[in-house]
């Protein structure tokens, strides 16, 4: 935290992205070795942990949080925050269900509606942040309540079931590799990995990615160099919204229903995954690979503690300790 303003004034914005690469590679390594360590510990402690069935359960439970975390990583890199990702996801799920189950339109239309609704909501948050200068914390908190309320209204506070579209559940629960016998990776997991590769490419190899980092490092400098930062910021929030739409489809498909009351609290899990993976809450720093590892650390920890039958209260305590520990290690690294 202490070196942040210093870094912002000294380093030219565009260079920051590449300048932190060595450091974030170290963080990724640290995060990755923590994940491997967790897997080894749990495998030693319980014969039930390292089994195909359980590994698939872990991956499946990572899918939704992982996707949300990818989206929120973009926003956090710009120095912002999005507290609405959980309820935005729910809202897109409800809209997809409304389209497919109530209006009887094809599944593909439902998917497109979810993606579109997510993008619009994200864009709205972006406009509030960039144009109206509302602090991201407040703007997205408002968006969170707004989408939560709308989900309840549209679904009439009850789950909407995809009873007329049995294929909808295949989006998450089907598998593209049926030949893998005992290790049938569900599509939700494949979608997570494909999205991660895409997002990583966009963040590292496109002008969109470069400005995302630059805005997070020193927004003023970027603006002074003649770039319309407002427009890029809105685009970042819109991309996050689009990714929430992906998460909405995954969760609706997994539950074979849109659950309108679900979603609150999921944003904190997504933010935690990003931060554990080395994304800096003060902006300008972060990687998608780190975020994915962060999401896997969280779900592996939760699953492992359950497999070991650790009482639920202690599961929460342990997860809290691990998050604090991970972020503390990150700060130690930066001080060096």
């Amino acid at each position: 935290m202490a070196n942040q303003p210093n870094k912002a004034t000294v380093q030219p914005p565009v260079k920051t992205a590449s300048g932190t690469k060595g450091a974030s590679a170290r963080q990724k390594l640290l995060a990755f070795s923590s994940l491997v360590l967790l897997v080894i510990i749990f495998s030693i402690l319980s014969p039930n942990f390292f089994q195909p069935y359980n590994l698939i359960a872990i991956m499946l439970s990572t899918a939704v949080n992982g996707v949300l975390a990818i989206g929120v990583t973009f926003v956090i890199i710009t120095g912002g925050i999005d507290l609405s990702v959980g309820t935005m996801m729910t809202f897109t799920a409800v809209m997809a269900a409304q389209t497919v189950a109530v209006w009887n339109l094809p599944v593909i239309v439902g998917v497109l509606v979810a993606l579109l609704v997510g993008t619009i909501c994200g864009m709205a948050s972006g406009i509030m942040v960039a144009k109206f200068k509302i602090p991201p914390f407040i703007a997205t908190l408002g968006m969170s309540m707004l989408t939560k309320g709308l989900s309840l209204i549209i679904a009439n506070s009850k789950p909407i079931y995809f009873t007329n579209a049995p294929s909808f559940s295949q989006i998450s629960m089907g598998t593209m590799f049926p030949f893998l016998q005992d290790f049938q990776i569900p599509n939700a997991v494949i979608i997570l990995f494909v999205l991660a590769i895409l997002a990583s490419f966009v963040l590292n190899n496109t002008i969109f990615g470069r400005y995302t980092f630059a805005i997070g490092s020193n927004e003023e400098a970027v603006r002074l160099s003649g770039i319309n930062t407002d427009r890029w910021k809105i685009a970042v929030y819109a991309v996050n919204g689009l990714i929430c739409g992906v998460a909405g489809i995954l969760i609706a498909s997994r539950l074979n229903s849109a659950q309108p009351a679900l979603g609150q609290g999921y944003e904190l899990d997504a933010i935690a995954a990003a931060v554990i993976g080395g994304t800096s809450l003060s902006g300008g720093e972060g990687t998608i690979l780190g975020t994915i590892i962060g999401a896997f650390i969280m779900s592996t920890l939760t699953n492992g503690l359950r497999i070991l039958s650790v009482p639920q209260e202690w599961q929460i305590v342990t997860t809290g300790i691990i998050i604090i520990f991970a972020v503390y290690m990150d700060m130690l690294r930066k001080r060096r």
Binding site: N48, N54, A57, N303, S309
Partner: peptide, 28 residues
């Protein structure tokens, strides 16, 4: 007998409950 008792933090978290069920099944 030995038991464990778990439940999601709120009654809206259907997916978290299913993760719990999956982990319970993994324990044979």
């Amino acid at each position: 007998v030995t038991i464990t008792f778990e439940g999601p933090e709120s009654e809206a978290m259907v997916d978290k409950q299913i993760d719990m069920l999956a982990a319970a099944l993994a324990k044979n």
